[in-house]
Nucleic acid binder design. Structure first.
Length: 593
RNA sequence: GCGCGGUUAGCUCAGUUGGAUAGAGCGCUGGCCUCCGGAGCCAGAGGCCGCAGGUUCGACUCCUGCACCGCGCACCA
């Protein structure tokens, strides 16, 4: 069996590298800025700029737009300034040529040997070219958060998949990640469930499929409960909260059967948490939170409830809004829990950042919570991020248990795997039964993840089976197929690729190398804006460019041994980037499919 | 009413600090050699980037106004 080769740098020390730790866009910008300074420009007029890859190879490899920005700030003609800057550029071994184009673009062409050396360094570096900007830093990521006693449906999918991918992306960049599943395991629904359990439980049904029976009971309560049942439910909730032994035993049973069900889905989708601290975990400290907020003058009593109120001239978006942290009847709300959760996270992990992954409807809520927390703990020092995503709706409108149009996450996974199985049976009859089953599982679950991840998270999603489960075009199977092609070539190549063999001959090899060296910055920028779709785009392009290379250049039957070894090295470079990308997206790399 | 999003090809959607000729998938049309995997590749048709102004060397991108759609705004999460 082919194994993943270990890359060995052909250079003796990292210091000899012409690339250093600076990225190419940074390096080129620095050259331009130095030249600009030498002709009397003040670079501080424009901050935070970088060079960028060109759209079209005819403009060279990278372009700088620095002259435009300087020219604006200085009131000069951009084209003339660009020419002045270019004439002052200091020669650099990596740069083959520079030119001024159009109204003032400064274009660079880089040498092939520099580009392949850069790729070598990337492949030999610890993160495979992914900047380790998270080393020594801790982030808590809060995602998925389903409610106990109900099966997960496709409405839970986005938080789970996007959150898990952000989790993986952060880990790949060296962050210490605490993935926390803040499950909904507390509240008045348990009183109802206990009443329904006592009245209508079908023990056999519970034994066969516990969470299905719990759902039935909950729905039945909603449909059939009379006034007396509702009164009783309130009493049972009160008993539970007072620590009644029987109710507590039932409650923990509801939670444990729910967790078993959740874990089944998580396992198939490649999702795992470090902590599962639900709402109930914080329940004991909530009275203290409210008392503290009142004592600080942050919260006040109003109409019998305890609220936090923002004035008319309050922060943007919060003006004239209210957050209720304790109801008239004394019960606490999720805002209260969220504040207690922040306190716990600060005390336990002291993270640099806390990231919440929820849908758009909770934007106001988290602004309120973050602002209230800042007022309560002004020196907390945590960066609080709510990265929201758009609504998932069905073509016929909202999904609701009442309408009976919920699509369960497990059913979606089953359907995806079964469709993938049909394709595997058709396309790869030579693989064994077990092998095809494993391929179908990997392809089906990856297709679901990718279908969600490849969209801009903030767009709304209209759910359709065919879109969700497509196996052609810009989908996970396409990426996986391209990877399997790499592996197939390697299996048959019987030559261990080495970084020393890396090089560039011709436009297709060059395009591939140019793209592969952008991997790190693609990961970094996707993470910076919490948008996995940018990473999907990058990997889709990787597959595209590789497939073009594959079509145009023979690897195993290359004209010379040098061509073959060089191209085999490029194949492994591509596979290596894809493996790392797949790991972040939660896609299993398959050698055959 | 206030706030947050959205409006890009027939459909579903990308479009990173404002950059050179606005991209992809699906669908449609036409191709792919006895050679590394056809879940693939190549080519073509298809656009008033919601409308109207503004900012500037340059606007799908920034600003203002308008239209339509979605969501949120005190005791659910």
């Amino acid at each position: 069996m082919w194994t993943v080769p270990r890359w060995v740098s052909s250079r003796s020390t990292f210091e000899e590298s012409p690339v250093s730790l600076v990225t190419i866009p940074e390096m080129l910008h620095q050259m331009v800025a130095n030249a600009a300074a030498s002709v009397g420009c003040d670079n501080s007029l424009v901050e935070g700029e970088q060079a960028q890859p060109t759209q079209n190879p005819k403009f060279g490899d990278y372009q700088s737009n620095h002259a435009f920005r300087l020219a604006r700030a200085m009131g000069e003609n951009p084209r003339a300034l660009a020419e002045k800057i270019v004439s002052a550029l200091v020669a650099h071994p990596a740069v083959v040529s520079t030119s001024v184009a159009g109204p003032g673009f400064i274009n660079f062409s880089l040498s092939d040997s520099f580009l392949s050396a850069h790729l070598q360094d990337q492949l030999c570096s610890e993160g495979g070219g992914i900047p380790q900007g998270g080393a020594g830093r801790t982030v808590v990521i809060d995602y998925s958060s389903p409610n106990v006693a109900k099966r997960m449906h496709v409405g839970h999918m986005r938080s789970t998949i996007i959150g898990n991918t952000l989790d993986r992306m952060h880990r790949a960049q060296g962050w210490t990640v605490i993935a926390d599943n803040h499950i909904g395991d507390w509240g008045t629904q348990f009183g109802k469930l206990i009443v329904a359990w006592n009245r209508w439980l079908d023990a056999d049904a519970f034994a066969a499929d516990p969470i299905c029976e719990l759902e039935r009971l909950y729905v039945k309560f909603g449909n059939d409960a009379d006034e007396a049942a509702h009164d009783l439910a309130r009493a049972e909730t009160a008993k539970l909260q007072a620590g009644d032994a029987v109710n507590n035993a039932l409650w923990s049973r509801f939670i444990s059967v729910s967790m078993v069900e959740f874990d089944r889905v998580y396992g198939r989708l490649g999702v795992a948490f470090d902590e599962v601290l639900g709402e109930s975990f914080y329940n004991p400290v909530l009275p203290g939170v409210v008392a503290a907020l009142k004592a600080e003058g942050i919260a006040e009593e109003s109409e019998g409830a305890v609220i936090i109120r923002w004035p008319e001239d309050g922060p943007k978006g919060l003006a004239d809004t209210v957050l209720v942290i304790q109801k008239q009847d004394g019960a606490f709300l999720y805002g209260t829990t969220d504040l207690a959760t922040l306190a716990h996270r600060k005390k336990t992990w002291s993270p640099e950042r806390v990231v919440y992954v929820t849908d758009t409807r909770q934007q106001l809520h988290f602004r309120q919570v973050f602002d209230a927390w800042g007022a309560w703990q002004p020196d907390h020092g945590m960066d609080l991020v709510h990265t929201w995503f758009g609504m998932l709706v069905l073509p016929e409108g909202a999904m609701s248990t009442r309408k009976g149009n919920v699509i369960r996450l497990m059913d979606l996974v089953d359907e995806a795997v079964s469709r993938a199985r049909a394709v595997a049976d058709e396309k790869s009859p030579d693989l064994s039964e077990d092998h095809r089953a494993a391929v179908a599982e990997a392809v089906g679950t990856a297709a679901i993840r990718y279908a969600d991840l490849s969209q801009n998270p903030q767009s709304n999603v209209t759910f359709t089976w065919d879109k969700m489960l497509s196996l052609e075009g810009n989908t996970a199977p396409y990426l996986m197929y391209s990877y399997a092609r790499c592996r197939s070539i390697q299996r048959k190549g019987e030559v261990t690729p080495t970084t020393a063999a890396l090089g560039i001959v011709g436009p297709f090899e060059r395009a591939l190398v140019m793209h592969l060296i952008r991997f790190g910055s693609a990961v970094a920028s996707a993470t910076a804006v919490y948008r996995p779709n940018l990473l999907c785009d990058y990997l889709y392009e990787t597959a595209n460019i590789f497939n073009r290379f594959y079509r145009e250049e023979k690897v195993l039957s290359a004209a010379t041994e040098a061509d073959k070894e060089r191209r085999l090295a490029l194949v492994e470079a591509t596979a290596s980037v894809m493996r790392r990308g797949f790991a972040m997206l939660g896609i299993e790399p398959l050698d055959r499919m």
